[in-house]
């Protein structure tokens, strides 16, 4: 009888652990796609890291004194063109391993750890050409690796989900606040002037926006509002929380089309299952010890 009571008492914990596993699985699948796309692109553009290019290891290795010390023997192999080809090839295999079914748990854990480690290594190699999507992806992959280290400890694994959600919400909130204090974002000229550049913009969009200051101002304020208010997703009631996630997804999709920021979609959307899990209006209440009727 006592065992039966204990079993019944632990049932919600088991359910919660299963749900945490499920959410982590969704996060890792999306992050693996992001890492895979990133490495596939790096392999397709491997000539961009050749000797003498702006991304070559030739000068990048002098950024930190220790890089040309004892570590050079290893780094010069890993971070030069052929080393990078192998590094990204292994990342592709790792992304595939993570995406493959639920079997081979040890292999998947190793794959996630490799994706996390190699993401940090790539950022260490050179900051040139990198962007916020790579930063967020490396943070997410590291948290997933820590969740694997915690194995069956649902509370520690849950902390990893909260960490991913918190970093993602922090990024939106800070991006919104930094735009809110900027005169060029408030008057909308930032929108027109970003789209006039070839690196981030688009010819047709610039022509369209060039003589529409009111529209630019409106887009500027929508961007400020959307980013600054996004962290409310954690506290807002369900319809608003869902709306904020939809706005976030549309925002990144729009940026991918208009600005060519394709990798941001995977990096940010991979954090959404964690946000959904932690958000009060999207199920957070139920998990705080209030079983569904």
């Amino acid at each position: 009888m006592t065992d039966r009571v204990k079993a019944l008492a632990s049932a919600p914990d088991t359910d919660e652990a299963a749900e945490v596993d499920k959410v982590l699985r969704r996060v890792e699948q999306l992050a693996a796609v992001g890492a895979g796309v990133s490495s596939l692109e790096a392999l397709a553009a491997i000539r961009d890291v050749e000797h003498g290019s702006l991304l070559s290891w030739q000068v990048a290795r002098t950024r930190f004194p220790w890089m040309v010390g004892r570590a050079a023997r290893v780094l010069d192999v890993v971070f030069d063109k052929e080393g990078l080809r192998a590094l990204h090839g292994l990342r592709l295999v790792s992304a595939g391993t993570v995406l493959a079914g639920r079997r081979n748990r040890a292999g998947k854990r190793a794959a996630k750890a490799y994706l996390a480690g190699s993401s940090h290594a790539m950022r260490l190699r050179s900051p040139y050409g990198s962007d916020g999507s790579e930063v967020l992806l490396s943070i997410t992959l590291t948290a997933l690796t820590l969740a694997d280290l915690a194995k069956d400890d649902a509370r520690a694994r849950k902390a990893c989900l909260w960490f991913i959600a918190a970093q993602s919400c922090l990024s939106y909130g800070i991006a919104g606040a930094a735009k809110a204090v900027s005169p060029v974002w408030r008057d909308g000229s930032a929108i027109r002037d970003i789209f006039r550049t070839k690196i981030f913009g688009q010819r047709e969009l610039f022509r369209f926006l060039n003589d529409k200051p009111r529209l630019n101002r409106a887009i500027g304020w929508v961007t400020i509002g959307g980013e600054a208010l996004f962290p409310l997703v954690l506290l807002a009631p369900k319809p608003i929380a869902r709306g904020l996630l939809a706005v976030g997804l549309s925002f990144h999709t729009g940026n991918a089309v208009a600005m060519g920021l394709n990798r941001f979609v995977w990096a940010f959307v991979s954090t959404y299952p964690a946000i959904e899990y932690c958000a009060r209006g999207l199920g957070g209440d139920r998990r705080k010890g209030q079983p569904e009727s």
Binding site: G132, Y172, I174, A178, A190, I194
Partner: peptide, 9 residues
Amino acid sequence: WRFFAPDPG
């Protein structure tokens, strides 16, 4: 996390 702000490119 400031992304294109306060002074965008």
